[in-house]
């Protein structure tokens, strides 16, 4: 086994772990709280750009470039994405559930547009380069550099995992679960479902922002096309495959789907004729889209089911005597 291969493995794992951070954030929103975010890419982009602006060296004619330490950038990413999430949550969480989905979809479109158009801040279509990379002084020795970054990401993911596990068992996490299982009962116990949901949505969004920052710093370069709806789609596939509600499932899903994605991309590159690469890549997306639907249909719990096995019991549409219908007046007199 050559050193290059080892370095490549470390590189691959590091990228996968940056996705794991994002998936953990989505798991707080969806897995723990049942909030559907269709704009993951937008929150990741906010984190990436905020951190890049705080830490990259100054560039003439562009705002930002404050050259601050990486840690400050990551904190900024966490806070900025969290604030944006809190705002969206405040606006829509009191309304019907799919309004949140539509709003997050809208925010992702708008963020994409903003990073593309605000050239004076974001560099427009050219993006931002020279984002400082952790352990940048090791850059000459690729194996050491890769391993150091891998260690850093392992530490970040592990730390997040411990924090989220602890949080799930805390009174806050229990209240969140209670609200998800039975909103009326939780409300009767004096929990404000809306406040808890906004908090969970903000925390999840903040973690996504952190993931975006980690990714930006590891690659060293960001551009608007990194944050297309495809990213949202990949992150969702990771969570659904791994098992929503389960933090270990979220991490496993990130590794697995990223491996599948990378492998199938390599396959496309190797097999498709030069002129047909784009077409073959779209077929790859078709298959992943169909697979996502198939998992929702046939194994909605994913690879690792939610601990405790508590499935969602919201009887939105039911079937009996052949016709689907919403329940009305469930009084039992």
């Amino acid at each position: 086994m050559s050193l290059e291969f080892l370095a490549y493995c470390a590189f691959f794992l590091t990228v996968a772990l940056t996705y794991a951070v994002i998936v953990l954030g989505l798991n707080v929103q969806w897995g723990q709280t049942g909030l559907f975010n269709v704009g993951v890419a937008g929150f990741v982009a906010v984190g990436a750009y905020v951190s890049a602006l705080l830490t990259s060296p100054a560039v003439e004619g562009r705002f930002g470039g404050l050259d601050l330490p990486i840690l400050v950038g990551w904190l900024g990413a966490f806070v900025a994405a969290g604030l944006l999430s809190a705002l969206i949550g405040w606006m829509t969480i009191r309304l019907r559930a799919d309004y949140l989905a539509i709003s997050t979809f809208g925010i992702a479109v708008t963020v994409q547009l903003a990073v593309l158009n605000l050239e004076d801040v974001t560099g427009g279509p050219f993006g931002i380069s020279l984002i400082p990379r952790p352990f940048g002084d090791l850059a000459g020795r690729s194996l050491a550099f890769s391993l150091a970054n891998l260690a850093l990401l392992v530490a970040v993911v592990f730390g997040l995992y411990l924090m989220l596990q602890h949080l799930a068992k805390s009174p806050w996490g229990r209240a969140l679960r209670a609200i998800r299982e039975d909103e009326m009962a939780a409300e009767a116990l004096g929990k404000s479902p809306r406040r808890f949901r906004i908090e969970a949505f903000a925390l999840g969004g903040a973690i996504m922002g952190l993931g975006g920052a980690a990714q930006a710093h590891f690659i060293g370069f960001i551009a608007p096309e990194n944050y297309l709806p495809m990213l949202t789609f990949q992150v969702w596939a990771m969570l659904i495959v791994g098992g929503s509600g389960n933090n270990r499932g979220a991490i496993l899903g990130a590794l697995l789907v990223w491996a599948l994605w990378a492998a199938s991309s390599a396959l496309v590159e190797a097999l498709a004729p030069a002129g047909e690469q784009a077409r073959a890549a779209s077929l790859q997306t078709v298959i992943i889209g169909v697979a996502l639907c198939a998992i929702l249909l046939f194994r909605p719990q994913g690879l690792l089911p939610e601990p405790g096995g508590a499935r969602r019991r919201l009887p939105f549409l039911r079937r009996w005597r052949g016709t689907p219908a919403a329940t009305t007046g469930s009084d039992r007199t």
């Binding site: 559930a97 709806p229 659904i240 779209s282 992943i288 639907c293 929702l296 009887p315 939105f316």
Partner: peptide
């Protein structure tokens, strides 16, 4: 008896698949 939001998510997957097709 899936919740509405699961159906929304499935529509998101279907949208990706149909567009890429």
């Amino acid at each position: 008896g899936a919740t509405a939001i699961i159906v929304v998510m499935a529509s998101f997957g279907a949208s990706m698949a149909l567009r890429s097709l």
